[in-house]
Design a protein around this nucleic acid. Sequence first.
DNA 1: ATCCTTCGGTACGTTGGCGTAACGAATCGG
DNA 2: CCGATTCGTTACGCCAACGTACCGAAGGAT
Lengths: 115, 115
Amino acid sequence: MAIEFKGPEGLDLWRRALCESVRRSGPDLSARQMAILLTVYLTPSPHTVRGLAEILNVSKPAVTRALDRLGMLGLARRKRDEADKRNVLVQRTVKGSVFLTEFSEIMLTSAKGGK
Amino acid sequence: MAIEFKGPEGLDLWRRALCESVRRSGPDLSARQMAILLTVYLTPSPHTVRGLAEILNVSKPAVTRALDRLGMLGLARRKRDEADKRNVLVQRTVKGSVFLTEFSEIMLTSAKGGK
DNA sequence: ATCCTTCGGTACGTTGGCGTAACGAATCGG
DNA sequence: CCGATTCGTTACGCCAACGTACCGAAGGAT
């Protein structure tokens, strides 16, 4: 189940996976939105708006809007930080986990199937 | 120079590369736009609007608009097909090649450096 | 208590993308 | 020739995202 690539093959892996995802009419997330989603799911909690903005070097409102969209799609949700009520913590959802799991599978099958 | 991954590590590779690309304030391409760009550069020519629309399962105007944007950014350009003047052929540019080469390098360094 | 900072969100005007429907130009079939 | 088809694009109204600036709520300092 291990995939390996080197040099330009990496780009082609990216192409296969991305094209397959687009073809399935999944949500047309922008690079920023996808980056936020992946960060929330794959790096240690907690995640705040400001923290995400700094990690990705984008403005706070941009993060707010991305979270609006991810929330609409059910891929992530907000929760007030009870310890410091100024903060908003971004949390994972079941639907988001499913989405990323499927995406991961697309990556693997695209890498294997193609070539 | 070979990278290997399995299971959820693929997603993390995707995250690292995407976050780094966003952090560098590269163009915020949507999944569709990036898919079109990669298809034009990594699959055999020629590429027409209709062909790209079929490959990605999106409408023709969506492809036209994506090409507008990629053209503005200098990442791809249009050329009338002289053999059949109804067709528009999508062609690569130097700037597009540079962009994808850098992106590929981001993938590789992200995969290696992180882990 | 009062200031001041920090947090996330909102307002504003602009820009860009969407899907559906139509369009003109080019080609094909007869 | 001339109708039908195919090609990419444009028009339309709508919705989403942008950056800058500002906002109220919450916390910290003195």
